[in-house]
Simulated scan of single mutants.
Amino acid sequence: MKPICAIALCTLGMSLTVGAQAADINNWPIKYTTSDGTEWSLYGNYQYDITDVRHSNAIEDSSTNRRKELGFTARKKDAWDALVYFDFQSKLWLDVFWRVDSKWLFGEDYGKFRFGYSKLPVGFEGVTSARADSFAELALPLGAFYETRRTGIDWAFERPHYLVNVGYYFGQDLQGDNDGQTVAARAAWTPFKSEGDVLHLGASASFEHPQSTTDGKDVYHAPAARWRARPEDGLTNVRLVDTGSLSHVDSNRRLGLEGLWIRGPLSVQGEYLQAHTTRSEGLPSYTADGYYVFGSYVLTGESRPYTAGNVNNLKPRNPWGAVELLVRYSSLDLDHGTVHGGRERDLTFGANWYLTQHFKFQANYVQVHATRLGKRQDPDIMELRAQVYF
């Protein structure tokens, strides 16, 4: 661990907390409302990470910016909203869309329609905003199977006891990659969802039909798939489990089951994900799966916020912030038939300190156990994160 950096982060946190007592640090001048009622806002998320790795020759210690996201939103209440968002660290476009409230168009509430570039709905942790992740990194099955973002149209419909989200994605991502089409859907039953009292049980599925491409040298590339995951360490490019490239892919199907229970300061969340690849040219199909489950307890008494089928960051009630303790177990199995992608099990202990509604510290300790082709690797990873979001 870099002790100077860690001390600096803690000192910054203490100074911000003291400052919050003298002024309302949550009231940032990031919004402007025009005369017609349209609200314009800055939208951003900055994260700086430090990792210390033990018992590994492949994964190195690191410290750098994890995300530098910045964009803006525009919103007219009960009518529409829009978001343009870019990550200057990875140099990737994030969400770019326009969403319309059907009641504004038709006079009746038939849900909301979104046009543009956005996340696909298969994977609870995947659709959670990166600014609101409970752990520093997504669990193993999300890292392996989540389809991230595509261009298309989706419809979301919510009622007190259920929600439905269906999308058709027909374009590449905004980096010009991932040709093909995907149909995806998510549904959840929410028998109760008041503040501090939530039960969410859901299922999701998607069917992706990737397309072949021809590069600038007129070389044909058949559709391919590759399933792999980082060891819950976002600063490394090392994957301890990896199928390698599966050629001549006809389709990829993803299935998910998800659950969330919140009762006061206690919550439990988990999901199961499966990926199935169908191949042409007489090649055998491939199936992989994984799951995670985690528990969270907020020592300061707050409850995790829940709205529209998702969770958000805690809002501290105390001038010195909110403190949350967590533990997560995740599992991923990429071995199937002649494909030896490997198996991995991670146990993560976490602590989050929400200083205000805009400042957050995270600490994770990850015990990794991975086996591939008879080789076992058991690194331990310590992660620290300082985050500013608005």
Rank of each mutant, 00 (worst) to 15 (best):
P121H: 09
E158Y: 13
L174V: 00
V219F: 01
T128A: 15
Y168N: 10
F192K: 08
L163I: 04
A156T: 11
V219Q: 11
S129I: 05
D179I: 00
V127S: 15
T214I: 14
R228F: 11
Y169A: 02
P141C: 11
G216E: 07
L163K: 08
A130M: 13
P223Q: 06
A132E: 12
F170W: 13
P141H: 04
R186K: 13
A144P: 00
L140I: 01
F135D: 09
R228Q: 13
L120T: 14
H221I: 04
T213W: 02
E195F: 03
Y117P: 14
L142G: 05
V127N: 13
P160M: 04
D179R: 02
G176W: 01
K119E: 12
T148G: 03
V127W: 13
Q181M: 09
E195D: 12
S129C: 11
Y162T: 00
Y168C: 02
E125L: 06
G123K: 10
L120K: 07
L163V: 02
A184Q: 08
A225R: 06
G152E: 07
K217H: 10
Y220G: 05
Q181H: 12
L142I: 12
T128S: 15
Y146G: 02
D133H: 14
D133F: 14
E158W: 04
A139Y: 02
A185L: 13
V166Q: 09
L138K: 13
S204N: 12
S118G: 15
R131Y: 14
R226S: 13
A130R: 14
A203P: 00
R186P: 13
P121K: 07
V166H: 10
G171W: 04
Y117M: 06
R228A: 12
L174F: 02
G180F: 08
F192W: 15
A185D: 09
R159Y: 08
D173R: 00
F135A: 09
K217P: 08
V219N: 06
F207H: 15
F157L: 14
A136S: 14
Q172L: 03
A144K: 00
Q172D: 08
A222Q: 11
T190R: 09
L201S: 04
R131Q: 15
Y146R: 01
S194L: 12
W227I: 12
F207I: 14
K193G: 09
A156I: 00
D154M: 02
L174K: 00
E195V: 01
R150H: 11
R228W: 05
G143L: 04
V166T: 05
W227K: 08
G202Y: 06
N178S: 06
T128K: 12
D177Q: 10
D215Y: 01
T148A: 13
G152Y: 03
P121F: 02
D215P: 06
R226E: 07
K193L: 00
P191A: 09
L138T: 07
T190F: 07
P121Y: 06
P191M: 04
A156F: 03
R228N: 10
S212N: 13
P160V: 03
G216F: 07
N165P: 00
V219D: 07
V166Y: 06
R228D: 04
H221C: 01
V183C: 06
Q211S: 15
